[in-house]
């Protein structure tokens, strides 16, 4: 049995990147349409908030340029989500609910390695990430932010925390698909994408109870608002390290629940198989 070394993992990422590039070259028309759809979809959400900020000259104490910075962060997160979540490996309830985990069982790799690597699509998924970088540069210039190495490291850590929260939330709700594959097949996309719009809301100026519930119960405030405020030097309630702690706790809970669900799955099995999505 082969060991999963960093080199082996990079090789796995490499084959998925190659497949992604091959798709872009071979099916250029569709690939470009996919990139466009991703970008339009994100721009629709962030531009709505930004247009409000322009019309009302800021939102709840955040200037329109600060709102733009927050939208840049949100777009970067969307970009990372698409780059690493290409084949329903983040919306894993689809794989579970459609009975497609069985495709993974026959691969001689640990399941978590397959799930981490199989969604990597850096070529067709990079659209929003690049737009996000562009918006970030513009907003940094307009806000005259001092970009130091520690600021960049902080940005990287917040992005990592945000991504961890997204994946952990998705896996946590996706465990329901182990128990009810039909009803919960789309639960991850409902939970993650259904609330995506909420993650673009600047929470500044809202009542404290709303802010608190949106960084704890439904952590949409940690998707863009909290990290953006912290990066702007005004970390909101609970302190600058809060998103990192929350990410770790949620990941632990999700891992526990997912393992429990897996145990149930291999005991009960799935009599459902749907040839949709990336699997036919």
């Amino acid at each position: 049995m082969d060991k999963i070394t960093p080199i082996r993992f990079l090789k796995l990422l490499g084959i998925y990147a190659k497949i992604d590039l091959a798709w872009l070259i071979r099916d250029t028309k569709y690939a470009i349409a996919a990139i466009t759809a991703d970008m339009i979809s994100n721009m629709s959400a962030v531009s709505a908030v930004f247009l409000i900020a322009i019309r009302f000259d800021g939102i709840g104490g955040m200037s329109s340029d600060e709102v733009l910075f927050m939208m840049a962060y949100s777009t970067l997160v969307t970009g990372l989500f698409i780059i690493f979540g290409n084949n329903n490996n983040i919306h894993v309830s689809r794989i579970i609910g459609r009975g497609q985990l069985e495709h993974m069982f026959i691969q001689p790799l640990p399941l978590h390695v397959q799930l981490m690597a199989s969604g990597f699509g850096p070529f067709t998924g990079c659209g929003n990430f690049l737009v996000g970088m562009g918006l970030l540069v513009v907003s940094i210039q307009r806000l005259s932010i001092q970009v130091t190495p520690s600021w960049v490291l902080t940005l990287f850590l917040y992005l990592l925390a945000t991504m961890t929260i997204i994946v952990a939330r998705s896996y946590l709700v996706s465990t329901m698909a182990f128990y009810s594959p039909v009803a919960a097949e789309e639960i991850s996309s409902v939970a993650i994408e259904g609330t995506w719009m909420l993650s673009t809301f600047p929470l500044s100026g809202m009542p404290r109870a709303i802010q608190l519930s949106l960084i704890t119960i439904l952590p949409e405030g940690l998707m863009a608002w909290f990290p953006a405020m912290a990066l702007l030097g005004r970390p909101p309630l609970l302190g600058a390290y809060y998103p990192l702690i929350f990410a770790m706790l949620l990941a632990a809970v999700a891992a526990f629940a997912f393992k429990k669900g897996m145990k149930y799955y291999v005991t009960k099995g799935s009599n459902r198989y749907l040839p949709y999505g990336f699997r036919r």
Binding site: T195, L198, F201, M206, I210, S213, L214, L218, E220
Partner: peptide, 9 residues
């Protein structure tokens, strides 16, 4: 959960 913050927004 989306509606309530939206109202406050």
């Amino acid at each position: 959960f989306t509606l309530i913050p939206l109202v406050y927004l």
